[in-house]
Design a protein around this nucleic acid. Structure first.
Lengths: 172, 172
DNA sequence: GAAGATTGAGAGTTCAATCTTC
DNA sequence: GAAGATTGAACTCTCAATCTTC
């Protein structure tokens, strides 16, 4: 953790200041945005700490996991970017690192010479599994909220993602 | 936005895969973490886009806003880091950039030679106000969730932050 | 010795520009 | 010309190490 616990909730304090400045109407939105920023920081540091023994970052773990859950174990780079919602340059970076570690290899696409496939290696498969087990135990198994709150938040954030145009299918 | 909308919810898809892999118990926690990661990315890009005309990032805006809401307009760098929950190195970086832009200036602490104060300038005050108005209009005023959902999520995330040891005062 | 601040290294992200292939 | 991938530049964040001052 970066610093010691504060004697007060910094976000509640920001809301008070925002209201005092005459921006009461937008205070709830401000609180939501800042809460997301802070919680992101917290969970990212947890995840990275849990993954550190495997020399994986969360970004690379996501790529590895996505490949490991694919029937053939391979996927075009651009589809990885779409699915994970990251820039093509980030995918290139992640794949290169995973390739250096021997967890993934680049393969030519059989019919389209423009696209490159990433294929997970046996070592990659094994590490993906081990890392997932570890992450489940360290982080996912207890995120610091009761089950009801978890599902409520997940649903609300799904709504937010949908409204942001992340995806178009709005069943459930 | 980085990519076009997907025809399905990528997180719901991950949950299905996670269950299929036999990790059903931890699937909700996984969904929460991934949701936070993705929503963070969305709101950060919105905020940065809104702040771009001012040549401010959200980190620097937060510093500027914190100073502008202070009675004296100045604060020790370490207190800025505590309040914003960021590393001292990040504060140094932010303050240097704000100083380069003439929005803040470094001042020696009157009694403690170790600490440096950041003081907001008149230009900084003016820009902080303009940026806040803009952010309220562009982002905070409509975050893409109804009011009930916003307060529910904010409260749940407060709980998560509290459980993470971010702060110790648990009233409200 | 401890606290506050800074610096340099390393990782990730995005964007713009470039190259190859359809 | 458009799509896919890569590269380089610019930014932020964190960590470890260093310097100054209490």
């Amino acid at each position: 953790v970066a610093t010691r616990p504060l004697p007060y909730d910094p976000i509640a304090e920001s809301v008070r200041s925002w209201r005092a400045a005459g921006w009461g109407d937008e205070a709830p939105g401000m609180a939501l945005i800042v809460s997301i920023m802070r919680v992101h920081q917290i969970v990212l540091s947890r995840v990275d700490a849990s993954l550190a023994p495997f020399e994986l970052t969360f970004s690379r773990f996501e790529v590895l996991m996505l490949l490991s859950l694919t029937r053939s174990g391979e996927l075009p780079l651009n589809r990885i970017g779409e699915r994970l919602q990251v820039h093509a340059a980030s995918v290139t970076n992640s794949i290169s690192r995973l390739e250096d570690a021997g967890l993934v290899e680049r393969v030519s696409h059989p019919t389209d010479g423009r696209t490159t496939l990433a294929r997970i290696t046996p070592a990659g498969l094994q590490l993906a599994h081990a890392a997932a087990v570890r992450l489940n135990a360290d982080v996912f198994g207890d995120v610091g909220l009761d089950d009801d709150a978890v599902s409520t938040v997940v649903e609300a954030l799904r709504q937010l993602r949908f409204n942001a145009g992340d995806f178009v299918d709005d069943d459930g």
